[in-house]
Amino acid sequence: MSEKETTHFGYQQVPVDEKVGRVRQVFDSVASRYDLMNDLMSLGVHRIWKRQTVALAGVRRGQQVLDLASGTGDLAERFAGIVGADGAVVMSDINAAMLTQGRDRLIDKGRVGNLHFALANAEQLPFASGSFDCVTIGFGLRNVTHKERALTEMQRVLRPGGRALILEFSHPTTRALSRVYDLYSFSVLPNLGRLIAKDAESYQYLAESIRMHPDQETLRAMMEEAGFERCDYFNLSGGIVAIHRGYKL
C-alpha cells in the first residue's frame, strides 16, 4: 500500500512531485510565443480581462503589489504605471523561461525603476508577512499543485486591508456557451497550438487543466478557507473567465 499521492495534470493523474516539472515543461515550450498564442486563443479578449482585473484591484500610487504567475507581465506593467516611483511591483513566476521573457519585454519597453523580479513558487513565497497591498495571480492558479497552499501564502503576505485577485479560466454559466467553448478548446485550440507554437500537447494540457479547475463557488469557498474575507467573484465573457477577489481584514 505504498501508493504515491497523485494530483491531476490536465485529465491525467500524475505523482504530486511530478506536476511542477511537467507544468514547467509546458511553459518552457510555449514561453517564446506565449503572447501571440494568448491573443489568438482568446481573440485578443485576454487584454480586456486583464484590464478588468486592474480596475477591480483599485491599486493606488505608492502601494506595493505582488503579481504571481506574472508570465509576460501584462498585469505588472499596468500596476507599475499606477504605483509610480514611490510604490513597487514584484513580478514573480515559478518558470524561469517565462519570467525572463517578461523581464526582457518590460526592460525593452523602458519599464524600469519600480519593477522587481522574483523566481518563486507561489506555494512558498519568499516574502515577509504583511508586505503587500495587493496580490494578483492571472491565469496561474490552475497550474499550482497545491492551490490551497498558494492561497494561504497570498493571504499571509498581504497587509491588513490588502486584497488578492485571482484571474482564471472558469466555468461558462450557460449550457449553450459551454458546448461552443468545449468544441473550441478541444478541436481548435490544440491545432492552433500545433501551428503557432509547434506544440499541440501543451495546449491540450491548457484546455484540460481549465476543465479541472474548481468552479466559481468552489474557488470562493477555498479563498474563505485560506482566511480571506468579503470574497466575491465577477464572471467575464459568460463565465469563461472569472475574477475572484478577497480581502485580508
Binding site: 482568446s42 479578449v45 480586456i48 478588468q52 465573457s237 459568460g238 469563461i240
Partner: peptide, 15 residues
C-alpha cells in the same frame, strides 16, 4: 472563446 467583452452580471452588480 467568445469575444464578448462586456462586463457580466457580477461586475455590473458591482458597478
Amino acid at each position: 472563446m467568445s469575444p464578448d467583452s462586456d462586463l457580466d452580471e457580477g461586475v455590473r452588480r458591482d458597478q
